[in-house]
Design a protein around this nucleic acid. Structure first.
Lengths: 292, 292
DNA sequence: GTAAACCATAGGATAGCCCTATGGAACTTC
DNA sequence: GAAGTTCCATAGGGCTATCCTATGGTTTAC
């Protein structure tokens, strides 16, 4: 069965006449007749009584007509929905790591809302490796994540670089020191994110570079929790600068480390082959604009 | 847009892979790719992100997918409804004149119900000329009507012949006469069916043949009403024999007319070109069986 | 780096639709 | 009734659009 057959069938049913139906469908009468006959063969029922002057629906034809009309209506709907749908390509799905999402996305989304009011942004928070995989699989339009990301299928656009800061409670001994070096941290308890976190990985490597293994007191999955625990004096942590917000300063002290300061670089990653939707372009535009 | 394109599109969406979709659709991969591309052009949107290993739906593709599936489901439904539908061709529409319908159809339908339990009979009561037109137009499968019917497009199958009887109230002077001739009726008031009724026409012609014009007291559209009025002594009438039923005999007297007795012949009429449904065949079979 | 997988393009084959022409049947008109 | 008109089906050739195989360019996997 094909749609043109259905279109021809409806034309005949409505005009009750093969010849006029053919005119209406812009085909010759024999072509239309043939297609109706083919349709009848496929369905196993005659669809019309050919009464000479008129063509009248058989019972089978009658039951088929309503269905045929609905099918064509659905097809038209589908075509129209896509054809005149500028609100398509307005929905994007972006990913971000736990150390980025809470501090960049809200403001970014806010800017987009004023600049591109019809843009719908879906945010997903996950660890770097998961984000990379999701972008590769096409589930995300783009993701904000820390480097390094080396997949050759991805476009990686660094957007800023920042130091990793020591975080300690106001009462913590380290908080009162004028300078803190990496090796000063060796004797203290760390509060870190989960094992899948790339930040945790980086911290562990940083400690290793300074010849000690961090003592890990607690693990949690959200940055806010880390801050809470640190604020209570249960340990220290290392967080990217972007995580430092005003409200923290009552209970927390952020300190740059002396010596070779640990850093991280944040980038936008996208799939090189993915069709770039307008929405994604707009989001990126707003991001670049904002960073200036 | 054509259905095969939609089928190909769904195959790709479900297998996330053009090559496997082509296998599933029993076409070569390039053919399928081409059709998907054509569909994308027609809709004005890319439907898939071609990511190398995977093909992932775009947003447009996602919205189209659900519609596409529904369209195919509707098509399948429609095809299936007709293909395995033996209960089709079970519904017939029969017509009958007012002087036939109440006296033949109920018993006929009753016989059909026992013999062909799945046969659905729709009955329509109308005057002969209207019935003929309806059969010609294809609205009725067949009709039971009095003759003559001369349309060359119709098959006319006479089924019985019967006399027309005088009907009078038990108290009516004519009811007590041993014999009644046509000319005896001239002085009496007639109660007849409407002007469109072929019986009325026949009665008027019959009276004309005997050189008088019937005095018409009342006109009504149902035979039962005629009988009521005649029973009350408001006039006489002439009805086909088949209209005489047991319950009438308390109040009515039916009398054959002496001389050249008026008759009518009842026939089944059908359209010669109409596709003869199984239901119509069954109905006719039951009718012929019953008349034996 | 090499092999395998995948999608797009190219070019020729072909199936199926469309066309014109025509036939036959039915309907209309005179 | 006879001629003319209308209507649908069939026939046969042309052509469009789909189909195929072959191939190239990428990407991915080993």
């Amino acid at each position: 069965m094909e749609l043109h057959q259905i279109r021809y069938f409806i034309a005949v049913a409505e005009s009750e006449n093969f010849t006029r139906a053919a005119e209406r469908a812009h085909v010759s009468q024999p072509s239309l007749s043939q297609q109706v006959i083919n349709l009848e063969k496929e369905l196993g029922h005659k669809l019309f009584h050919r009464l000479g002057r008129k063509a009248v629906l058989t019972e089978a034809g009658g039951t088929f007509l309503s269905r045929a009309k609905r099918i064509l209506a659905e097809v038209d709907d589908a075509a129209r929905e896509l054809s005149d749908a500028p609100e398509l390509d307005r929905r994007i799905v972006v990913g971000a790591t736990p150390t980025v999402a809470p501090y960049l996305l809200p403001q970014l989304i806010g800017r987009c809302r004023t600049e591109f009011p019809r843009l719908l942004i879906h945010a997903r928070e996950d660890f770097r490796t998961h984000l990379v995989r999701s972008v590769v699989e096409g589930e995300l339009d783009l993701a904000l994540t820390s480097l390094p990301v080396k997949d050759p299928r991805l476009s990686v656009e660094p957007i800023f670089k920042e130091p990793l800061l020591l975080v300690a409670g106001r009462q913590h001994p380290l908080a009162k020191r004028p300078t803190v070096t990496a090796t000063d941290l060796a004797e203290h308890t760390f509060i870190l994110l989960g094992d899948s976190s790339s930040l945790t990985l980086q911290i562990q490597r940083f400690c290793g570079d300074h010849a000690f293994e961090p003592k890990i007191g607690y693990r949690c999955s959200q940055v806010a929790t880390v801050k809470e625990l640190v604020g209570l004096g249960l340990g220290i942590s290392i967080l990217p600068q972007v995580c430092r917000v005003k409200d923290d300063l009552k209970s927390l002290v952020y300190k740059r480390l002396s010596g070779r300061e640990p850093e991280r670089e944040v980038a936008v990653i996208r799939h090189l082959l993915r069709y770039q939707s307008r929405g994604a372009e707009q989001f990126l535009g707003a991001l670049r604009e904002w960073l200036k």
